[in-house]
Amino acid sequence: MTIPTASVSDASHIAARGAIVAAGLALLALGALHILRPDLDPSRQMISEYAIGRFGWLMTVCFALFAAASASLFLALMGNTSTLVGRIGLIFLLVAATGLAMGAAFRTDPLSTAPEAMTFSGRMHGVSFMIGVPGVLVATLLLSFALRTHETWIGLPLLSLMAITWLSLAAMAIAIAVTMKHLGVDVSSIVGWTNRLFMAGYALWVIVVAWPMAR
């Protein structure tokens, strides 16, 4: 069954444009950090580590932009998501925005920091990860299924981009688990790339969802 085209209010239109701009700038900031910080290995180090040392402020801005994109998309979709699945998805989108905002507010500790030596900021950054990542996963899943039969979003690759976020996180989790268990296989060299693919996939998903409402 196809749901009729959404009637986009002026507020939704503005919020959708805000989501696109914020997500696009977040990707640009993340890309710029790869040039500004060649000392960090993008294959092995998580993006959070860009917040430590030179140009750390730019990673803070990047996380803040991801949070703003999520919150703006939440506002844009509020009046255009009528199903129960969609409304639950919106709640998790707000959860994702909260986790990403916390990631901006609390800088991570270096990866080599012992658990007992972690700072309050480092611990809170870990909490932000545990809030933001599930929020992103559930929000992209539920909203992709809620919107895919809507005329406004038919034909857009919502499920494909959702799958990218899920599969990249799964690959990252498996790589970390295998490496930590010392099974004779070091696959930590893919952890950084999967982390980046997760964030890029999410940013593109936000842009694709917001696009029809922003036109």
Rank of each mutant, 00 (worst) to 15 (best):
A76V: 02
G201M: 04
G53A: 10
R54F: 03
T2F: 08
F120W: 12
V209L: 08
L84Q: 13
S43Q: 11
A6D: 11
I88E: 01
V187M: 11
H125S: 05
V208D: 01
W193C: 10
K181T: 14
D186N: 15
V133C: 08
I131V: 14
T60F: 01
R54G: 01
L161P: 09
V8N: 13
R107P: 00
L25M: 12
A170L: 15
Q45F: 09
L158W: 11
I14K: 15
A171K: 08
V206G: 00
G122P: 04
P115H: 05
V127P: 09
M1G: 15
T165L: 07
L141I: 09
F63S: 00
S70C: 00
I3P: 01
G184R: 07
L27S: 11
I207E: 02
L33P: 00
A173Y: 11
T83P: 03
A68V: 04
A69M: 03
P110Y: 02
R37N: 05
R37L: 04
L143G: 07
I47C: 04
L183Y: 14
S128F: 06
L111D: 13
V133I: 15
V133N: 03
I154Y: 04
I154H: 12
A69G: 11
E49R: 10
S188L: 05
A16R: 01
L197K: 04
L169S: 09
L158A: 06
R54L: 05
G155N: 05
L40A: 07
A11D: 15
W153H: 04
A23S: 13
L143P: 09
L100M: 08
P115G: 06
I47L: 14
G135R: 06
I176V: 15
V127C: 11
A175Q: 03
A51S: 14
H13A: 11
S189T: 14
R44C: 03
I91A: 14
W193N: 13
H125P: 03
L111M: 12
M46C: 08
L58F: 06
I154M: 13
M172Y: 13
V21N: 08
G99T: 05
V85L: 14
I35Y: 11
G135M: 05
